[in-house]
Design a protein around this nucleic acid. Structure first.
Length: 403
DNA sequence: AATAGAAACAACCGCCACACT
DNA sequence: TAGTGTGGCGGTTGTTTCTAT
């Protein structure tokens, strides 16, 4: 090894390779009794001839009690493919959306199963587009591709912010819990609870953007479970702000995050609003979405902070979202947009329908509003990825599907 | 039954970001 | 501010298991 030393030092005599049941037992017993603390110091204390890094990986990927092993379900496969289309090889980010699955396991499954499967079907596993369609954008990105890029960047930035906030929250968990207990003493019970799939995901919000009459007034608090440390905290709600005006049933979702987030955490507790922050949030909270937001017109805005508190608009993208019937369906539509970005802008002879509600100018027309939900119901029922996966599962391996 | 190649899985490696001193 | 330690992440490799011949 060259460069600086790592956890995996070059001590002679440290064992490498597969772990034995005895080693697993030692590691489990030690962590159950003492916690892992410093990984570097753990092996000697636990009586293991392993480096700390090896112990950490073994615990993280295989011994942790909140890990599900075994075959991936069709739903999980679908989710991985869709999230990979959105996030690329960001396995840890993908893993946050798959309950009890580790990034390593997902990565391995992708490399050994899904990537090959997509390739066999004629889909580029990197771009998630049919290989014969990769030249379609030779004249430059389409409007929808541009929209998609915005959304992907948005999601990417969101995940990074979530990770940062998780770190912050863990450090301050005790004081923070106390704070929110105080602030939330007048709140009603939670309208939804995030399950173990959150893996510490946490959001914050810029409270000065709160618009009265917010989306989820009756659900001011929710609970997330931090599965890695059995740490349960009240949820911080979101960093994208929604404004639903009475006149046009429009929700504006804004992305913005800066160092003021710290202060926002406090004011969120005082606020009686909830905010959906991104498309994936809607997918994650389908019940909430169905109850409050169905048929709503969404406008995504991205902005950057100028540093003096003023937000500089960067771009706006109008997108009508499909009414999600479940976690996967929204993403299905989104993924289809990724794979076939021009799909919605041209008439189709198929029964799939053509409406995503985004016209060539990125504007949502009234007709789109009126018909959008029905179109999406049709389109989603088509369920692009389920069809693909069903096709893969049922078809002979050497006969790629026709797109 | 033997064997080679493919597939699947587990683990390692190096880099990076961040916290701490 | 620089140096160091630590843990996380993604890419890659090594080993085992499966399958076809």
């Amino acid at each position: 090894m060259t460069g600086k030393s790592t956890l995996c030092c070059e001590k002679v005599g440290l064992k490498k390779g597969p772990w034995t049941p005895e080693e697993d037992q030692k590691l489990l017993a030690y962590i159950e009794e003492h916690g892992h603390g410093s990984w570097r110091a753990l092996p000697s204390k636990a009586g293991l001839q392993r480096c700390g890094k090896s112990c950490r990986l073994r615990w993280t990927n295989y011994l942790r009690p909140d890990i599900k092993r075994g075959k991936f379900s069709l739903q999980e496969e679908q989710t991985i493919i869709q999230l990979h289309a959105l996030l690329g090889n960001r396995w840890s980010a993908i893993a946050t959306h798959l309950p009890k699955r580790t990034d390593n396991e997902i990565k391995n499954y992708w490399n050994t199963h899904l990537k090959k499967r997509l390739a066999k079907m004629g889909i580029d596993p990197v771009t998630h587009k049919p290989k014969n369609a990769t030249l379609s954008s030779i004249d430059g990105p389409s409007k929808n591709e541009s929209n998609l890029s915005h959304m992907a960047q948005w999601e990417s930035a969101r995940l990074e912010a979530e990770a940062r906030l998780v770190r912050d929250s863990k450090l301050r968990s005790n004081s923070f819990q106390l704070q929110l207990q105080q602030l939330g003493s007048s709140s009603s019970s939670s309208a939804y609870q995030a399950g173990p799939n959150w893996h510490g995901t946490m959001w914050s919000s810029k409270s000065n953007k709160v618009v009265s009459g917010g989306l989820l007034d009756e659900s001011p608090t929710s609970t997330m479970t931090f599965s890695d440390q059995n740490l349960s905290l009240p949820a911080l709600t979101v960093g994208l702000i929604s404004d639903r005006t009475a006149s046009n049933n429009e929700v504006v979702v804004k992305e913005e995050r800066d160092e003021e987030e710290e202060e926002e955490l406090k004011s969120i507790g005082k606020s009686n609003h909830h905010f959906l922050r991104s498309a994936s949030d809607i997918a994650l909270f389908p019940d909430v979405y169905n109850q409050h937001l169905e048929g709503t017109k969404w406008r995504y805005e991205t902005s950057k902070s100028s540093g003096d508190g003023d937000d500089v608009p960067m771009d706006e993208v109008d997108v009508n979202l499909p009414p999600p019937a479940g976690n996967s369906n929204f993403i299905n539509g989104f993924t289809e947009l990724l794979i076939n970005p021009d799909h919605n802008s041209s008439s189709s002879s198929s029964d799939v329908g053509n409406g995503t509600g985004v016209d060539r100018d990125g504007e949502c027309t009234d007709d789109d509003d009126n018909n959008n939900n029905n179109r999406y119901e049709q389109e989603i029922s088509k369920d692009y990825w389920n069809n693909i996966l069903d096709l893969v599962n049922s078809s002979p391996s050497d006969s790629p599907p026709v797109f």
